[in-house]
Amino acid sequence: MRARYSNYPIGNLLLNVINQSGLDPKAFFEELKFTNFSKAIERLDGWLDHGEGNVLLLERLQSSRFAIETNLLKQVMAENDAMLQRERDVVVKVEEDKARKAFQPHLDVIPELSRPTQITPFCLTGGNRRFSTQLPDDISSWPQHDQLAYLRRVVPENFAKHQGRTFFMGKIVGYLYYPRFDSEPIQLTITGDLETQSEPLSYGISYFRFR
């Protein structure tokens, strides 16, 4: 087995157990009743490289004479989970920063149906994104009446362009106006007026929005 290391607490603990066992890696995994050495190494590498992996390795380890003391294992797993959460938080922040930077004010259609009648063709044709309309970058800074006047013009244009229908999700029954990245969308009718119904019709937007 090649030299291995890990940036994760659980990975380092597992490597230490193997090193302290007095056995070579193959014999160690044989004692844990792994008959396929390559598969056992794959399970180990999951924990070493990603800080999480197949629990079978831990279960067999804890049932063997090499079992890790329970409180120590709990402590290490808690440290490991905290490290994984920090990594996830970084990924989420990076993705949010990308989305924020790429954001443009836009209109999304509200379809009649809550899910596509044919999912595969719907996905292949870009979902409901193909019916969206990009808006001026600075529209959110306009006076409200200017925004609404502009929307009353572009919404009917969008509706007419697509003949009032989506692909695989029925008729266009309204629009959602996204002026800013952090703001909630504003619901509009098919004429571009503010929607006054109490129940939003935005359920269809979340289904494969592809944005």
Results as ranks from 00 to 15, higher is better:
Phe181Lys: 06
Lys161Thr: 13
Leu113Glu: 08
Pro185Thr: 10
Thr196His: 11
Val94Ala: 03
Gln144Met: 14
Ile139Glu: 14
Tyr150Glu: 09
Cys123Ala: 12
Phe131Tyr: 14
Gln134Gly: 11
Pro179Glu: 12
Ile110Phe: 07
Gly164Ala: 06
Pro179Val: 06
Phe159Arg: 06
Ser183Val: 00
Asp146Glu: 15
Tyr150Pro: 07
Ala99Ser: 10
Tyr178His: 15
Leu188Gly: 08
Arg130Pro: 03
Val94Arg: 09
His162Cys: 10
Gln144Val: 14
Ile190Tyr: 05
Ala160Phe: 10
Ser141Asn: 15
Ala160Lys: 14
Arg130Lys: 14
Asp108Pro: 02
Lys171Met: 09
Arg165Tyr: 01
Gly127Trp: 01
Gln118Lys: 13
His162Asp: 10
Pro179Asn: 11
Pro111Val: 02
Leu124Phe: 13
Phe167Gln: 14
Thr125Asn: 12
Gln118Gly: 03
Lys161Phe: 08
Phe122Lys: 07
Asp193Arg: 10
Asp97Thr: 06
Glu157Ile: 12
Gly127Asp: 08
Phe122Glu: 05
Leu107His: 00
Asp193Cys: 10
Gly192Asn: 04
Lys161Asn: 09
Gln187Arg: 12
Pro179Cys: 10
Lys98Pro: 00
His145Pro: 04
Pro105Leu: 03
Leu135Asp: 04
Lys171Leu: 13
Arg153Asn: 14
Gln134Asp: 12
Phe159Gln: 14
Thr125Glu: 12
Ile190Gln: 08
Val94Pro: 00
Pro143Tyr: 10
Gly192Phe: 06
Pro121Tyr: 09
Ser141Phe: 15
Phe168Cys: 10
Gln163Asp: 09
Ile119Arg: 12
Tyr175Ile: 01
His145Leu: 13
Ile186Tyr: 01
Arg165Glu: 10
Thr191Leu: 09
Arg130Asp: 04
Leu176Lys: 11
Glu95Ser: 09
Pro136Trp: 06
Leu135Thr: 07
Pro143His: 06
Gly126Pro: 05
Val173Asp: 07
Ile190His: 08
Lys171Cys: 08
Arg129Thr: 06
Thr120Lys: 12
His145Gly: 05
Glu96Ile: 05
Arg130Ile: 12
Arg115Gly: 03
Arg100Gln: 05
Val109Asp: 02
Gly174Gln: 10
His145Thr: 15
Gln144His: 14
Glu184Asp: 15
Phe167Thr: 11
Ile119Lys: 09
Thr133Gln: 12
Thr125Cys: 08
Ile172His: 01
Gln118Asn: 10
Ile172Met: 07
Gln104Trp: 04
Gln147His: 10
Val109Thr: 02
Leu188Val: 08
Gln104Glu: 07
Phe103Thr: 00
Gln187Ser: 15
Thr166Asp: 04
Pro111Phe: 04
Lys161Asp: 06
Thr125Met: 12
Thr120Asp: 07
Gly164Cys: 07
His106Pro: 00
Gly164Arg: 04
Asp108Lys: 09
His106Trp: 00
Phe103Gln: 00
Lys171Val: 04
Asn158Pro: 02
Thr133Asp: 05
Lys93Tyr: 02
Thr125Ile: 08
Ser183His: 13
Phe181Cys: 07
Gln187Cys: 06
Glu95Thr: 05
Arg153Trp: 05
Phe181Gln: 01
Ser132Leu: 07
Val94Gly: 00
Lys98Thr: 02
Pro185Glu: 13
Ser141Thr: 15
Lys98Ile: 13
Ser140Gly: 04
Tyr177Leu: 13
Phe159Ala: 05
